[in-house]
């Protein structure tokens, strides 16, 4: 791709990551949440792939690491849900506390959002990696 596209995507990508992080952390207070955050996180990587090519992006974001993040975050979600059983029932919110409307008032929900965001982001990125293996160009 041209220099213009490359520079713009390089400029935009970090902001998208920040936005994804915001959506993950504030998912319980404002519109957003894990899934949306994950998609935006993945798009920041996919934009880089389309402008710079699969081979160059793969050097920074390794397939193994992406795959690791994906499985590890899924395990975190289920472990958290199972941990709820000790306190009463499956998926029980055992970390309640904090003032209403504040960042820490969500209990385990922000943790879920972060894990799901990472899982979805890594999943989408992985999907692109695997598809692009077949249509390697650039």
């Amino acid at each position: 791709m041209t220099l213009i596209v490359r520079t713009t995507t390089k400029l935009v990508s970090p902001f998208m990551v920040t936005y994804a992080a915001y959506l993950m952390l504030y998912g319980h207070l404002s519109p957003g949440g894990g899934f949306q955050a994950g998609v935006i996180l993945a798009v920041s990587v996919i934009l880089l792939i389309t402008s710079h090519g699969y081979k160059r992006v793969k050097r920074k974001f390794r397939l193994k690491e992406v795959s690791l993040i994906e499985s590890a975050s899924a395990i975190t979600v289920i472990m958290l849900a199972i941990a709820g059983i000790i306190f009463g029932s499956f998926f029980y919110n055992f970390l309640r506390g904090g003032e209403f409307g504040s960042l820490i008032s969500g209990g385990i929900i922000p943790i879920f959002n972060i894990a799901i965001g990472l899982k979805v982001g890594a999943g989408f990125a992985l999907l692109f990696y695997i598809l692009l293996r077949w249509v390697e160009s650039d």
Binding site: K64, L68, E70, S71, A74, I75, A81, I82, F90
Partner: peptide, 15 residues
């Protein structure tokens, strides 16, 4: 929940 957990462990070890 447990089969799901083991499924993700399996995908982790296959990485």
């Amino acid at each position: 929940a447990l089969p799901l957990l083991f499924a993700f462990f399996l995908s982790l070890i296959s990485t």
